[in-house]
Write a protein that binds this DNA or RNA. Structure first.
Ligand SMILES: Nc1ccn([C@H]2C[C@H](O)[C@@H](COP(=O)(O)OP(=O)(O)OP(=O)(O)O)O2)c(=O)n1
Ligand SMILES: [Mg+2]
Ligand SMILES: [Mg+2]
Ligand SMILES: [Mg+2]
Length: 579
DNA sequence: ATCCTCCCCTAC
DNA sequence: TAAGGTAGGGGAGGAT
């Protein structure tokens, strides 16, 4: 019930914490503006899709037809990316006038130099400094550092940082993670409103339920290779920058690149100075010097997504949207005694349709629950289908590593590893080992719910139904953690105003209002070095502050006002906002 | 007990 | 050069 002074909510200890944080070099390195939804106004059907500007096909949603044109005769209509014609010899399909414009932009296609390098799991960025191999008094390093210092001041940085005009729009147009979230929300919204209706009318007598998990193979790469067939046998990754010593994320890499150890989300390259300092961070060029980098094609991903979902709609009894390249579908088959062969046949058919229509490969995992279907996809990839019987599932699941389990990532894996090492004196981490830990042990270490979840997951037990969770959106937020560089309070405030506008628009698009406002900030740590990523946030401490307003708001000026109110109460010294 | 705030974690 | 978003589950620990 706090409406104004944030500090009044804080314990003394916490106030101190914020004060000291604000004195550390304090730079808000990212800002999040978020409004939790507690109530929505009467919603016009599909208002979201009519208003949004980003796309065509995903958004051309007439009433109940989720996505139109769901027959397999669709022409996929991919846009030919202008940069795909950089291979002069092989690509006959590109018009010559287009080619002439772009012939000098070849650098991202040929990357054969052997880079002196090293990969990153983003979590490793947060490891304590002592885990890195610090090298001092090295002249070359210092020189390079000098260069990096200089480069940080370049015009490019200024033009792309948070004080540049149109920063937010430009940023979102190029952020793959933004698109991932945007598309996921839209798909969930479309699919959820549809599957509800369907479930009501369906009853199943003498039928067996199967769950399929459908996921495109190296999605961004597969789409990008449609117009670059000469690269299909080479290691390929999708990334923004193509320069040989530039550093950017690889969003997706193909299976050839993966055979070298390259992974989605890995840095394309890590500058030499960071390689020496962060010896645990790998990068693609080190693992696979010949990796070819191709650019993003967001419009075409969206088209492929539309085509994919249309096929799934036509071939299932229920769908749960997961992401732009992935969904669970439910299929009921009559009990004939031959269901397993039939469901495999069905999967083959769906995969062939996807291939035919999208020109990309999909893989399908099949079982009787979502978890086992998800695990089956791991066996199915690439370009295959795989069925896991529920009969021997407890034994079958033993072969998977704990990170294969959905919900188990880097942190939980490490915790499990520690426990297994302590209790079982083993240094491996499979579901077989996890099955040896008791429910109470797991609950003691991971909490009541998480412990139970782990206990069930490692046995292949999953009682979720498709779309069983409450489908209503609970929050709407906008956040940017890249390019945030302020030199004074006015710039900071202007940014808050802009991001509030973004949040406001998103709320208006869904005819929603919110009552709880949360601000999230990243504050540079005292000992943080230069960010590894250009214009990145580097090592930061996260702070979040929320207030429960007495009223529901959605207007930009209200969001801005309350947001700035919160921020002011954090007592950030304007000077610490400088870079 | 239950709720609330401020986190951390995970997924794509 | 280069675009590190976002929603939701859940735990710790304090307030009610
Ligand atoms: N760290 C990540 C992970 C994924 N993606 C994007 C690019 C991927 O192509 C797409 C789908 O993610 P998947 O996890 O399904 O990975 P892929 O489809 O690339 O490979 P696969 O599914 O074959 O393992 O999401 C991303 O930008 N960054
Ligand atoms: Mg995929
Ligand atoms: Mg996927
Ligand atoms: Mg996992």
């Amino acid at each position: 019930m706090i409406t104004h002074i944030i500090a009044s909510q804080l314990s003394t200890a916490k106030i101190k914490e914020y004060e000291s944080a604000s004195k550390i070099i304090v730079k808000p390195s990212w800002i999040v503006d978020s409004i939790n939804q507690k109530k929505l106004r009467p919603t016009k059907d599909y208002a979201l899709f009519n208003k949004n500007s980003i796309s065509n096909m995903l958004l051309n949603n007439n009433n109940n037809t989720i996505i139109n044109n769901s027959s397999s005769s669709i022409i996929n209509n991919y846009k030919i990316p202008s940069t795909s014609n950089t291979n002069n010899n092989n690509n006959k399909s590109i018009k010559s006038n287009v080619r002439n414009n772009l012939i000098n932009k070849n650098e991202h296609i040929y990357l054969h130099e052997v880079a002196t390098s090293n990969t990153l799991s983003k979590n490793e960025l947060n490891k304590p400094i002592e885990e890195y191999n610090k090298i001092e008094n090295n002249k070359n390093i210092e020189e390079e550092e000098e260069e990096i210092n200089k480069s940080l001041e370049t015009k490019w940085d200024v033009n792309h940082s948070s004080i540049a005009p149109n920063f937010i729009a430009n940023y979102y147009e190029n952020s793959r993670l933004h698109y991932l979230s945007l598309w996921r929300n839209k798909l969930k919204s479309i699919i959820n409103s549809r599957s509800k209706n369907k479930q009501k009318t369906k009853k199943h007598f003498n039928e067996t339920k199967f769950v399929m998990h459908v996921d495109m193979d190296c999605f961004f790469v597969s789409v990008g290779l449609i117009s670059r067939p000469w690269l299909v046998d080479k290691p390929v990754g999708v990334s923004h920058s193509s320069g040989k010593n530039s550093s950017s994320d690889i969003a997706s890499c193909n299976y050839i690149a993966r055979s070298f150890g390259v992974k989605n989300g890995m840095l394309k390259y890590l500058p030499l100075i960071y390689q020496l300092y962060y010896i645990r961070i790998f990068h693609a060029k080190k693992l696979c010097p010949k990796i070819e980098i191709i650019p993003y094609e967001f419009e075409n991903y969206e088209k492929a997504t539309t085509l994919l979902y249309n096929i799934l709609i036509d071939n299932s009894d229920n769908i749960q949207a997961v992401s732009c390249d992935e969904a669970y579908i439910e299929i009921w088959l009559p009990n004939t005694g031959n269901e397993e062969a039939e469901i495999l046949q069905k999967a083959k058919y769906i995969r062939s349709e996807i291939k035919k229509v999208t020109e990309c490969n999909a893989s399908i995992g099949i079982s009787t629950n979502m978890l086992l279907a998800r695990l089956a996809t791991k066996k199915a990839k690439p370009n295959g289908e795989f069925y896991i019987s529920s009969k021997n599932s407890i034994e079958y699941v033993q072969q998977f590593s704990v990170t294969d389990l959905p919900g188990v990532g880097w942190s939980i894996e490490n915790n499990i590893l520690t426990i297994i090492l302590t209790l079982l004196l083993k240094n491996i981490n499979t579901c077989k080992d996890l099955q040896r830990l008791s429910l109470s042990t797991l609950q003691k270490d991971f909490g009541k719910k998480n412990g139970e979840k782990l206990y069930n997951l490692c046995r292949g037990v999953d009682n979720r139904n498709l779309n069983s969770e409450n489908n209503e959106r609970k929050s709407i937020s906008a956040e940017i953690t890249w390019g945030i560089r302020f030199s004074n309070n006015d710039q900071f405030k202007a940014f808050i105003n802009e991001i509030s506008k973004e949040v406001s628009q998103r709320m208006e698009n869904e005819s929603k209002k919110g009552q709880k406002l949360t601000i999230k900030l990243k504050i540079k740590k005292e000992d943080a070095g230069k960010p590894i990523k250009r214009l990145g946030h580097g090592s930061c401490k996260n702070v979040s502050k929320s207030i429960n307003l007495n009223t529901y708001i959605f207007k930009q000026e209200d969001i801005t006002k309350h947001s700035w109110n919160i921020i002011s109460n954090l007592n950030l010294d304007p000077k610490v906002l400088s870079v």
